[in-house]
């Protein structure tokens, strides 16, 4: 059973329909007791970083997610949900994230070091390059295109966190990230056709393996 964390941010419908399409059981909840019973947690999110953290903090879900992740429960953040896994973001100020992964979220500058401008947001289908083929989310999948929509990007000095990336402007965009049971995708797997759906399936498989172990 996958628990989709409902903290009042963003579009939960697409994640719900994606899990239904792959025949996965899920609950959509903001209730910690209910979410605690789930074998894996999914943190979606569309919107601003600060608003999302405010919601997670005020509802106590931030502490809950950190505790569950520390216990080893599989956690998948999608888009803003992925960015929230990191230490901090500069979106509309400086705000602390969940701090489960090392790194900082900054805005695309819109200009390469060479002075060439590129558009922000990074919106559309971009090619995903795999760096860790053995990563739980990428298992058995081939490199291909996935759908991105974001204006902010993760910066991390620790390469082991980046399982796959996409090239945009002169930025190597961390696109599949994670350490152990904590993972995330910058793009929307639920909107990324076959490849995205494959990653969601992989996450669900990982959750099942963990819960039987």
């Amino acid at each position: 059973m996958i628990g989709i964390i409902d903290y009042g941010m963003g579009n939960l419908h697409s994640v719900k329909s994606a899990l239904s399409r792959i025949g996965e059981e899920f609950v959509l909840s903001s209730d910690k007791t209910e979410l605690e019973k789930c074998d894996g947690l999914l943190l979606p999110g569309v919107g601003a970083f600060k608003d999302a953290m405010d919601q997670l903090n005020s509802s106590g879900l931030a502490e809950f997610v950190k505790d569950e992740a520390a216990k080893g429960k599989p956690l998948l953040g999608i888009c803003l949900g992925m960015q929230l896994l990191f230490e901090e973001s500069e979106e509309h100020g400086n705000f602390q994230g969940l701090g489960l992964l090392p790194g900082r979220v900054t805005r695309f500058t819109g200009k390469t070091a060479g002075g060439v401008t590129y558009k922000v947001p990074h919106m559309g289908w971009n090619h995903l390059a795999f760096h860790q083929r053995e990563h739980d989310l990428l298992d058995g999948l081939q490199e291909g295109f996935v759908y991105f929509v974001h204006s902010y990007v993760v910066n991390t000095a620790e390469q082991d966190v980046i399982a796959a990336s996409a090239q945009y402007g002169d930025v190597e965009v961390p696109a599949v990230v994670g350490r152990g049971n904590v993972m995330g995708t910058q793009f929307h797997p639920e909107k990324s056709s076959q490849l995205g759906m494959g990653m969601l399936k992989n996450f669900c498989t990982f959750v099942k393996e963990r819960s039987y172990a």
Binding site: E190, S192, S193, Q194
Partner: peptide
């Protein structure tokens, strides 16, 4: 549409 499609 949303329940049947995996594209934006």
């Amino acid at each position: 549409v949303a329940s049947e499609l995996a594209i934006p």
